[in-house]
C-alpha cells in the first residue's frame, strides 16, 4: 500500500468550490427518493400509480425509480394484467 495516510479531501476543499447547482441537484434527488420510497411503503405500485400519488411527472418517476432500482433500494415485482406496466417494491434488506 502507499504511504498516504492524511485525508486528502481537506486538500481539495481548499481549492474547489461546490456549485449551488450541484448542491441543488443532490437535494432534489433526495427529495424525489423520499417521496417515491414513501409511496411504495403502502404496497407495490406501477410508475403511473407512483406518479399519480406523488404528483411527480412520469419521466421523473421513471428515471428516479430506475436509479433506485440500480442502487438496490427498489426491486421489480410482477407485471400488471395487461402486460403493460411492472410493479415495483421496496427491497427488503437483511
Amino acid at each position: 500500500m502507499s504511504e498516504k495516510k492524511r485525508k486528502t479531501i481537506d486538500y481539495i476543499k481548499e481549492k474547489r468550490v461546490v456549485s449551488e447547482e450541484v448542491k441543488e441537484k443532490r437535494k432534489e434527488f433526495v427529495r424525489l427518493k423520499k417521496l417515491i420510497l414513501k409511496v411504495l411503503e403502502s404496497g407495490d405500485k406501477t410508475i403511473p400509480e407512483i406518479a399519480d400519488e406523488t404528483k411527480l411527472p412520469l419521466p421523473v418517476v421513471t428515471y428516479t425509480l430506475m436509479t433506485l432500482r440500480k442502487f438496490g433500494d427498489v426491486e421489480t415485482g410482477e407485471i400488471d394484467d395487461d402486460d403493460e406496466f411492472f410493479y415495483y417494491k421496496l427491497k427488503t434488506k437483511k
Binding site: P59, L65, E84, F85, F86
Partner: peptide, 9 residues
C-alpha cells in the same frame, strides 16, 4: 425494454 416516459412495455 421499457418506455423512458412511463415505464410501459
Amino acid at each position: 425494454v421499457l418506455r423512458p416516459k412511463d415505464g410501459k412495455m
